[in-house]
């Protein structure tokens, strides 16, 4: 089927693991909203399989994981679970406190980009827009 044109990017902004500090994810949700995207926002403490189910039901292009307290270490598991659910086209970005030595592991696991403290609004928005376009193109054809 033909691709859907001119649709706003759909982005799931969430947190996995045990840390509940969600101010950062709320700010990101507002940035993306103000850039014209549709943000599905959830409570923190999501389980991996719940994130996969949410991404599937909401047909998102991008998942943004906010991690401030080592929850980024769970992201490779998320990547694997997404692939198993035939959601390999969904792009995943991580933002928050990610030590440099962990970043390479995340990228190797398939994460599209890691945003560190000080990342600018414009930078985040344009990256996420680009990844959403990539996800649309990488989607299995119906």
């Amino acid at each position: 089927m033909t691709e859907v044109l001119n649709m706003p990017a759909r982005v799931l902004v969430t947190k996995i693991g045990l840390d509940g500090h969600d101010r950062g994810s709320r700010i990101i949700a507002a940035y993306l909203r103000d850039a014209g995207m549709e943000v599905i926002y959830t409570n923190p403490w999501q389980k991996i399989d719940a994130v996969v189910a949410l991404a599937m039901e909401e047909d998102v292009d991008v998942i943004g994981i906010s991690s401030l307290a080592t929850d980024h270490l769970l992201v490779p598991k998320l990547m694997k679970a997404l692939a198993e659910a035939e959601l390999g086209h969904v792009r995943v970005v991580v933002g928050g406190i990610v030590p440099d030595e962990d970043e390479a592991d995340l990228l190797a696991a398939g994460v599209s980009e890691v945003f560190h403290p000080g990342a600018m609004r414009e930078e985040i928005v344009s990256s996420v827009e680009g990844f959403a376009a990539e996800a649309t193109n990488a989607r299995p054809q119906d």
């Binding site: 706003p8 993306l32 103000d34 850039a35 014209g36 549709e38 943000v39 926002y41 719940a50 949410l54």
Partner: peptide, 19 residues
């Protein structure tokens, strides 16, 4: 948003038990 077209969709926060 009538200005930017963006949205934060949060209704399902209340429905998380059914995910």
């Amino acid at each position: 948003s009538p200005i930017t077209g963006g949205a934060v969709l949060g209704d399902r926060i209340r429905m998380a038990e059914h995910t």
